[in-house]
């Protein structure tokens, strides 16, 4: 195995640290995330409150850690759900081709053409605000990326000798797709997953920022930033911390994904996903 680049190593370490802190949030915070202390509103970072307090005198550090739980959960779960949907859709379309392919690709094109966040906004009001609504609406809008990727790869793989020989051996379609074709696609899929997670974390923060996401008193990095923006004139730390941590997390995922793409396929530099 070739040596990991320093930036990729740092990113991995950062992501592991953040996840660990999110998991052990109750152990490493002194204040509850919804404990209000009206006497100590909008305080700057101090020894008592490491990241200061918000409009209602709640500890920002606690809210950030609990927000990390929400944001990371959303990022990871929606990516996995999108992968599952994308695998099913993309593999079916790519393998069978013809009419099934055209119909599925029509849907994918519609999703591609129309910004996925716009559809997510509409889905949110359909599903109602809250964590489950967020999970479903982001999964339902993110799957097209995976579907496209898988379809393209399957289209190429379909013509290869090993698929033909599997067919000659009399194997069923589903078996050929999921036992033989898909396992060969893991490389590009893992890269695209690493890049999808930050996209979805940002989608959640976008929806929460517009007031369509997580309900208070629960927090996510997006809701914290939205609250912070209202106080930008007198308490800028309220937006700098949540926005900054979101930025670093997304940066770490993107750096890692970049490195993975180059590591798995050095000949082809990755082209950034440019949706949204």
């Amino acid at each position: 195995m070739r040596k990991m680049k320093l930036s990729a190593r740092l990113s991995l370490a950062f992501l592991m640290l953040i996840s660990l802190m999110a998991i052990s949030a109750p152990l490493i915070t002194r204040h509850s995330y919804d404990e209000q202390n009206i006497q100590r509103r909008l305080e700057a970072p101090s020894h008592d409150y490491w990241m200061g307090t918000d409009l209602l005198g709640r500890d920002l550090y606690s809210r950030m850690l609990y927000g990390a739980r929400t944001s990371l959960t959303v990022g990871i779960c929606t990516t996995l759900a999108a992968l599952l949907l994308g695998l099913l859709g993309g593999a079916t379309a790519g393998y069978f081709g013809g009419r099934i392919d055209r119909a599925l690709m029509r849907v994918v094109d519609l999703f591609y053409l129309f910004p996925s966040l716009l559809l997510a906004i509409l889905l949110m009001i359909f599903l109602g605000r809250g964590l489950s609504g967020i999970l479903i609406s982001i999964s339902l809008t993110a799957w097209v990326v995976q579907a496209r990727l898988v379809r393209g790869q399957v289209l190429q793989a379909r013509e290869l000798a090993y698929v033909e020989s599997a067919r000659a051996l009399g194997l069923g379609n589903a078996r050929i797709i999921f036992r033989h074709v898909v396992p060969n696609l893991w490389g590009p899929i893992i890269v695209s997953l690493t890049l999808q997670i930050p996209t979805n974390i940002m989608a959640e923060s976008f929806l929460s920022f517009l007031g369509l996401g997580i309900r208070p008193p629960l927090s996510s990095w997006g809701t914290l930033a939205a609250d912070g923006l209202r106080a930008i004139r007198y308490a800028p730390h309220l937006i700098i911390f949540p926005g900054g941590i979101l930025f670093l997390t997304a940066l770490a995922f993107n750096t890692l994904g970049d490195w993975l793409a180059g590591w798995l396929d050095p000949a082809r530099a990755r082209i950034l996903p440019s949706r949204q």
């Binding site: 923060s205 912070g228 923006l229 930025f247 750096t255």
Partner: peptide, 23 residues
């Protein structure tokens, strides 16, 4: 910049710009 650009949410860009250039 190209990696940061896709990792920065628009509201953070806006906030930083407002903080620095207007406030």
């Amino acid at each position: 910049i190209s990696v940061a650009g896709v990792s920065l949410p628009a509201y953070l860009v806006a906030s930083l710009l407002i903080l620095f250039f207007s406030l």
